[in-house]
Design a protein around this nucleic acid. Sequence first.
DNA 1: TGTACATCAGTGAACGCGCGTTCACTGATGTAC
DNA 2: TGTACATCAGTGAACGCGCGTTCACTGATGTAC
Lengths: 236, 236
Amino acid sequence: MTGTRTTGRRERLRAETTAEIKSTALELMRSGGPDAITLRAIAREMGMTPNAIYGYFATRDDLVTTLIADVYSALADAVDAAWAASAQDGPARRIQAWAHAFRDWALANPEGFRLVYGDPVPGYRAPDGGAAPDAAQRVCVGIAALADAAWEDTEPAFPKSEFTWDDFDPGLLGKVRPAFPDLPPAGVALALRIWGHLHGLVSLEIYGHLRGQTPSPDKLFRSELDQLVGSLGLKG
Amino acid sequence: MTGTRTTGRRERLRAETTAEIKSTALELMRSGGPDAITLRAIAREMGMTPNAIYGYFATRDDLVTTLIADVYSALADAVDAAWAASAQDGPARRIQAWAHAFRDWALANPEGFRLVYGDPVPGYRAPDGGAAPDAAQRVCVGIAALADAAWEDTEPAFPKSEFTWDDFDPGLLGKVRPAFPDLPPAGVALALRIWGHLHGLVSLEIYGHLRGQTPSPDKLFRSELDQLVGSLGLKG
DNA sequence: TGTACATCAGTGAACGCGCGTTCACTGATGTAC
DNA sequence: TGTACATCAGTGAACGCGCGTTCACTGATGTAC
């Protein structure tokens, strides 16, 4: 019993240190950009020697890979939660809830947004499988859910679509079609386009390109959403 | 006479080397990402010693600043040219021409797009004035031109707008209002939103987030444009 | 036209720095009898 | 409960590397008389 408890303590300590390494890395990135993620800087911040980190991550790229996966998951959690929380509402409100969760997360975690959607950390080589395919797909499926929720109300307003299943990669369809069997190819295209709209405004804002244009990006984003649900024929 | 000609030769050589430094830097960035822009790598590529570059640029950050300004100008040139070339067409076609020029330029110069709109080069500190405000404003004014061209046909279809001039920064308005005196605040908001749409899809594509989703981002982009001009009430 | 001088692009060696990573180790924490 | 041993988180010193930048210089190109 003592044995298991003390083993538990070691494990807990280990988990805590691992978490601290990751959060320190993100903090560094927040204040110093993506190139601030260095083992030495993290160690310095934590008051340890650089080599101590090798007890937790085999290599710097391993740490970055984990970081990307973690951050992506956090984003997916945030938008999924907003989606679930709005289950009682109509499609227009749900889309707005999702979109605001997306933007709010990005504003609260700009370094995470850059890590996931921007340039890679200098010198970073992703492992063979590609980074964080899991959470990336969760986000994609989430956006497909937006399109699916809107689709039945909006379809008539749409031009007869020239899209077919061949216009999308099997990897995407393998997730989306089982989840939303009624969504036609044009609906998937709509999902990607909605993604583009949201990504565009948010990334302009995160990267500071809206500074100097408007003091109220918030208002602009809301207006974009109103217009979006309006153009889908949904009533807010 | 011989004097001026030979002086001219020196100047020409100097200009050529300067241009070669810049193009080499962009080439390096193209193949190796933003962190590949190092004086030593450029010099290596050009077969000179690193310190030779100090004859052309006072500092590495100077080079990067010039690079950003150059690239931004090239982008502005490309979209302005497309706009001018479509002067005979209706707003829908002109918007599409502009948008395609934007995307085509980005696809042809992905490293430039990243340089201008993405994370900064590692370790780079922009000079006080901010980088390339000139070309950045040209692009903004270009987008305002899209909105202005569409505005008179589209206005009725728009919701009564809640935007006022206070929703935009004076710097932007100082350029836009004189150029497009008939464009109301909601029109400027529209311009920023259009920018967001285009930026979103293009940057997703440039950063590889559309890979694994669709094999034909081209089609998706065209569909987005059709939908955009459609939602503006314009006929293509 | 010919010679003495100025310009200036580029060289070669060196600096100090922060980086990722390796190695042999120490010392506290936990385990077995 | 007490002792001998195993585990393992973290240390300290060191490596080789590529980086930006400085310095004193060379040698070809251009200029003045």
